[in-house]
């Protein structure tokens, strides 16, 4: 589960955690949203061009994620103060979590921490029971978009309908 060299994979139970989140520093974690899908978007840093585009895109796409009842959480090793200013500058209203102290601890537990001292650019979608439904590791300079997330949420919706029969 906490393989230091590899991103957590589908089927594994997602490690529980909370981290302080922008804008107000309250503790936020996936366990608070049990019963709904949770999208964890690990990214290297606030303010760098690709990250800005990715998080700005995710804000624009947020209504589509909300149609699935999904909760989106951005995570990097930046501080709450940095997250707050970054969120304001890009109009981001979903929580940005500060994996700041101890630095990168949550990213490491998900196998999403790079030796250069930042989170990887990695997406992890948790199903409503807190299991990993899908994960994806991008090169740091490539914005992975939203299509893989939406495809996974589609699949989870279908699976749940099957379960309900």
């Amino acid at each position: 589960m906490s393989d230091p060299n590899g991103l957590i994979t589908a089927g594994q139970v997602a490690p529980g955690f909370t981290l302080p989140a922008a804008p107000d520093g309250r503790e936020v974690g996936p366990g608070q949203f049990r019963g709904r899908p949770v999208v964890l978007a690990f990214y290297p840093a606030d303010w760098t061009p690709v990250c800005s585009d990715q998080m700005a895109l995710y804000q624009a796409a947020l209504p589509e994620l909300e149609r699935y009842g999904a909760e989106l959480l951005g995570i990097s090793v930046d501080s709450v103060d940095s997250h707050r200013a970054f969120a304001r500058s890009r109009g981001i209203r979903f929580p940005l979590l500060a994996d700041f102290e101890p630095k990168g601890e949550v990213s490491r537990r998900y196998g999403a921490y790079a030796p250069r001292g930042q989170s990887d650019r990695a997406l992890v979608v948790l199903d409503p029971d807190g299991r990993v439904a899908w994960s994806h590791l991008s090169p740091p300079e490539v914005n992975p978009g939203v299509d893989g997330i939406l495809d996974t949420l589609d699949r989870l919706g279908t699976d749940r309908r099957v379960d309900a029969r």
Partner: peptide
């Protein structure tokens, strides 16, 4: 085992 980087060709 290291996770391979994933880049897909979008269509």
């Amino acid at each position: 085992m290291t996770t391979p980087l994933q880049v897909t060709t979008a269509r």
